[in-house]
Simulated scan of single mutants.
Amino acid sequence: MASLRVATRMFCAAAETAAAPAAKSRWETLKNSKAGVWCRSLFSDYKEACREMVVGAWERPLKASVYVSLLGGAWACFHTTPDQSSFEAALLERSNQLALLSPWIRNATSDGHVQSLVKLRNEGRLHHASLGLLSLVYRASYDPDVTLYEAQCSNVSAPWLEFPKRVLDVGFAGRWWILDLKMKDYDVNEDDFKHLPAHMQVTSPPSVQEVERNERLHKESWVALTVEDEEKEANVVDRKEERVSEESQTQA
């Protein structure tokens, strides 16, 4: 029995010693194969490129910071690009803002632009295209679900040269720029002021002195009048009435 155990141990030891060189030879064979050589060369190229990039950034920090800023800006623009659902939400919000105003107060440009977009959306002709860093909303000729020959045949579709004319909005950095531009002063009806002179159609912000004066007058309007103030005002009114009566008598 003891001799059988010794023979088994010797056989296992011989098997282990025979398997070790075999495994080593297989690894060497895989390492020296075409795939292994290609992987080693690829790893070496990437390693050298990373080393050169680090050395170049250390030697030219300004150039490296500009590249990093551009890459970071592109990454931010890519992740903040608005999609079709955001445009529909923005369009619904703008439409509700205009609906709260009377038709006599709405800006004609804002109202017309929003109404045309809502009409195209209801007709299924408002399409969205994502270009990575920005998004486009454009007008299509037909709804994609329409089974007309003109809508399904690509040979009679609108040419690509007309695509810039069909673009209705541009989404960039989380905003829809044309929609926001059209909604500027949406609660001001410019038709009410078109008959005024040119210098009265343009408004300018008040100066600091005018703002302070208006605030002072507003605060004074809430102060309760005293008896002396009421008497002074009554005397001023009486004097004005006397002057008016004297002037009317002299004219008569």
Rank of each mutant, 00 (worst) to 15 (best):
L217G: 06
W177I: 10
L136N: 01
K232H: 08
L131C: 05
E88C: 03
S41N: 03
A57T: 06
D185Q: 09
E220Q: 12
T147W: 13
L92K: 11
S33H: 03
E228T: 01
P144Y: 01
R243D: 14
A57Y: 00
F78W: 15
E247L: 14
E52N: 06
D143C: 02
T8D: 11
E48D: 05
L134N: 12
A90N: 06
E52P: 02
S157R: 14
A7M: 10
D180H: 14
Y149N: 15
V137C: 00
N189F: 02
E190T: 07
S135N: 00
L62H: 09
M1F: 10
N107A: 02
T8C: 05
W222E: 13
W104C: 15
V137R: 00
Y67A: 09
H113Y: 11
A49D: 15
C39G: 08
R239P: 01
V244S: 14
A49V: 06
L117C: 01
W104P: 09
L134K: 13
V137L: 03
P206T: 07
I105H: 07
T80G: 02
F43W: 15
C12K: 12
E162R: 15
E246Y: 04
V37M: 13
N107Q: 06
A173S: 13
R175V: 03
E247R: 14
T80R: 07
